[in-house]
Simulated assay, not measured.
Amino acid sequence: MLIGVPKEIKNHEYRIGLTPDSVKELVRNGHQVIVETNGGASIGFDNGQYEAAGAEIVATAQEVFERAEMVVKVKEPQPNECEMLREGQVLFTYLHLAPDLRQTELLVKSGATCIAYETVTDNAGTLPLLAPMSEVAGRMSIQAGAHHLEKAQGGQGVLLGGVPGVAPAKVLVIGGGVVGTNAAYMAEGMGADVTILDRSVPRLRELDKEFGGRINCVYSTAAAVEQYALEADLVVGAVLIPGAAAPRLLTRDIISRMKNGSVLVDVAIDQGGCFETSKATTHEEPTYVVDGVVHYCVANMPGGVARTSTMALNNVTLPYAIALANKGAKEAMLEDQHLLNGLNVHKGQITYDAVGVAHDLPYVDAAEALNS
């Protein structure tokens, strides 16, 4: 199979779909790889390294899309990239279609087979291709939140861990999954007063044991969300419904009553955001203020630590990329239900129920679509 890797073009996005080491593995399996020139140069993967791994360097993204049988990316394709996709081509990347009608329509129109990292599953019932970026984003959420609590950044001028004689900041983490656990880990390590909310009592027990009672583990209700948000200096939104739009857990009314200069970090923004006042921002302009509350809603947070993120992502995506290349997309997905769960669009049809529901569009079963 001929596999193509274009340079990412989203604002301040420096990650790349395949590292040179991943290219080498695909070449060892008998495949050809083309990489857009300087696709990974900004994070230390130069053209020479890709050529040494067996890749061919090409001048433009257009050539990548024209020649490749499978395109491997990181972020969702931008409109001009969607328009370069063609029927029968495989796209393997993050998609986050539920909050993005325009991208959904363009991918359906393309006729391509579009497999989303974020809906591939595993035997443990987790999302293995989303997990490493969730780990990164969870940890970054506290870095970002602590920075924007500084007065010069628009915050109230609070040090996350406090100092002797001055209480630490109160941090609320909504959601006890991968993002929330990593956010709590960082916040607790920096000395903050941390509360984590989740709707699973078994998960709260696990977190209490994991943290040795050093954080507050509270069952999530609407009343609890309101109470702890109003007390918080920093709130991290870390909720996820796989493939679906994120639920809105903080209303505009609650936000309007939060502390002036407090900070919201919405890690769910890729799926539409979990705060009523959330709107996607970029690393170039990461924040805005509503009712005196600083909002950090960067839609590609892990892109800020692009080398770490690229390597962590390739650790989990490479086996699937090899399977798709070795067997062909149809056979690989029909043999592996977990990979099949990643299929969101195929030959003009939506094949993931949460995407169809989000946009009130018809959808079909993924296996049925592949076999039709």
Rank of each mutant, 00 (worst) to 15 (best):
E226P: 08
Y228A: 06
Y228P: 02
A229S: 15
A229T: 05
L230I: 12
L230Y: 07
L234D: 08
G237V: 06
G237E: 07
G237D: 09
A238Y: 08
A238H: 09
V239C: 00
V239W: 06
V239K: 09
L240Q: 10
L240P: 08
I241T: 14
P242N: 12
P242L: 10
G243T: 09
A244N: 12
A245H: 02
A246K: 09
L250W: 13
T251K: 14
R252S: 14
I254C: 04
I255D: 02
I255S: 11
S256I: 01
S256Q: 03
M258D: 12
M258T: 11
K259W: 05
K259Y: 01
N260Y: 00
N260D: 08
N260E: 11
G261D: 05
S262P: 09
S262L: 04
S262H: 08
L264V: 04
V265T: 09
V265L: 06
V265Q: 12
V265D: 04
D266T: 06
V267G: 00
A268W: 07
A268E: 07
I269C: 04
D270S: 11
G272N: 12
G273I: 03
G273E: 03
C274D: 07
C274G: 03
F275E: 10
E276L: 13
E276D: 14
E276G: 11
T277H: 03
T277K: 10
K279I: 00
K279Y: 08
A280V: 03
T281H: 08
T281P: 09
T282L: 01
H283C: 05
H283E: 04
E285M: 11
T287E: 06
V289I: 15
V290L: 10
D291N: 15
V293M: 01
V294F: 00
V294E: 01
H295V: 00
V298G: 12
V298K: 07
A299Y: 09
A299I: 11
M301L: 12
G304Q: 13
G304D: 10
V305S: 07
V305G: 03
V305Y: 06
R307C: 06
T308G: 12
S309V: 00
M311A: 07
M311F: 06
A312L: 13
A312V: 02
L313C: 03
L313Q: 11
N314Y: 01
N314D: 15
T317S: 14
L318G: 03
L318I: 05
L318E: 00
L318K: 06
L318A: 03
P319K: 14
P319G: 15
A321H: 05
A321L: 06
I322S: 07
A323W: 04
L324K: 03
A325D: 01
A325W: 05
N326D: 15
G328W: 13
G328F: 12
A329Q: 08
A329H: 15
A329I: 02
E331Y: 04
